[in-house]
C-alpha cells in the first residue's frame, strides 16, 4: 500500500510539474470557468436579487465544465509517445496510476475553484455569510467524488478516438446523485438554514465517494490491461 502511494505521488508530481512548466491546462481551465461565469451573468441578470438562488448551482456548473477539460487531458497526454504503456510495463500496481492521476486532477480542479468561486461571488456581488468550514468540507467532498469517477472514466474514454466527446456522455449521468447532493448541501450552507439536512447530504456524498473510490480503485487494472 505504501509503495502504491509512493508511486502515485511520483506520477502526480510528474503531471503537476509538467503543468507548472506549461500552465496550458490550468490556464485554459481558469479562463474557461471565468467565461462560463461571464456568460451566466448575461443569461441571469446579476443585479436581480433572486439570482442569488442559482449561485450554488453555478459553483458546480463551473467546477464540472472546467474540470472536464482537465480530465480530458489527463490520459490523452499519456498517449504522446505511448507513455501510458511505459507506465504499464513499469513494476508498479496499476492502481497507483489511477491514484496519481486522481491526485493531480484534484489539485488542478481545486486551484481552479480557489480562483473561480471568488470571481463568481465577486461578479454576482454575493456576500458569503455561511460557515466557511462546512462550505469547504462540502465543496471538497463533492469535488473528490467528481474527480475520482471523472479520472476513471477519462481513462476509459481515452481508448476511443473521440474521447473528448465521449467523456461527458459517460460522466454526467453517473455524477447526477453527487451533484444533487452537492447543490443541495451548498445551497443549505449558503442560506444557513437546515444544517441537519446538509449533514445528511454530506454523508450521502461521502458514501458515494468511498463506494466509487473503492470500485474504481479495483476496476482500474482492467482498464490498463491490454487486449
Amino acid at each position: 500500500m505504501k509503495i502504491i502511494l509512493a508511486d502515485a505521488l511520483t506520477i502526480a508530481a510528474k503531471d503537476l510539474r509538467n503543468e507548472l512548466k506549461s500552465k496550458q491546462t490550468i490556464g485554459m481551465m481558469i479562463i474557461f470557468s471565468s467565461l462560463v461565469i461571464l456568460i451566466f451573468s448575461f443569461a441571469f441578470d446579476p443585479t436581480n436579487n433572486t439570482v442569488k438562488a442559482i449561485i450554488p448551482g453555478l459553483i458546480w456548473v463551473i467546477t464540472i465544465f472546467s474540470g472536464l477539460l482537465g480530465l480530458n487531458r489527463s490520459f490523452i497526454s499519456e498517449q504522446e509517445n505511448d507513455s501510458l504503456t511505459g507506465l504499464r510495463v513499469a513494476p508498479i500496481d496499476p492502481s497507483s496510476i489511477f491514484l496519481g492521476k486522481v491526485v493531480a486532477n484534484l489539485v488542478l480542479v481545486i486551484i481552479v475553484q480557489l480562483i473561480s468561486i471568488p470571481i463568481l461571488f465577486l461578479l454576482f456581488d454575493y456576500r458569503f455569510h455561511g460557515e466557511m468550514i462546512w462550505f469547504l468540507l462540502i465543496v471538497l467532498t463533492a469535488t473528490i467524488g467528481f474527480i475520482v469517477i471523472g479520472t476513471f472514466l477519462a481513462a476509459l474514454a481515452a481508448n476511443a478516438k473521440n474521447s473528448e466527446m465521449l467523456l461527458p456522455v459517460l460522466l454526467l449521468p453517473l455524477l447526477s446523485p453527487l451533484m444533487i447532493g452537492a447543490v443541495q448541501a451548498t445551497k443549505i450552507v449558503l442560506e444557513q438554514e437546515g444544517m441537519k439536512d446538509a449533514v445528511s447530504w454530506l454523508q450521502l456524498m461521502a458514501a458515494y465517494d468511498l463506494l466509487f473510490f473503492a470500485a474504481c480503485f479495483f476496476l482500474f487494472e482492467y482498464l490498463m490491461e491490454g487486449s
Binding site: 469517477i149 476513471f152 472514466l153 476509459l156 481508448n159 459517460l170 449521468p173 453517473l174 447526477s176 446523485p177 453527487l178 444533487i180 447532493g181 450521502l204 458515494y208 463506494l211 466509487f212 470500485a215 474504481c216 476496476l219 482492467y222 482498464l223 490491461e225 487486449s227
Partner: peptide, 20 residues
C-alpha cells in the same frame, strides 16, 4: 472489458441515483 467496467460502475450508480 471496457464496457463491462462501465456497466458495473453504472449498476452501482442506479440505486444511489434513486436514493438521492
Amino acid at each position: 472489458k471496457l464496457s463491462a467496467v462501465f456497466g458495473i460502475i453504472g449498476c452501482i450508480n442506479v440505486p444511489i441515483v434513486f436514493m438521492a
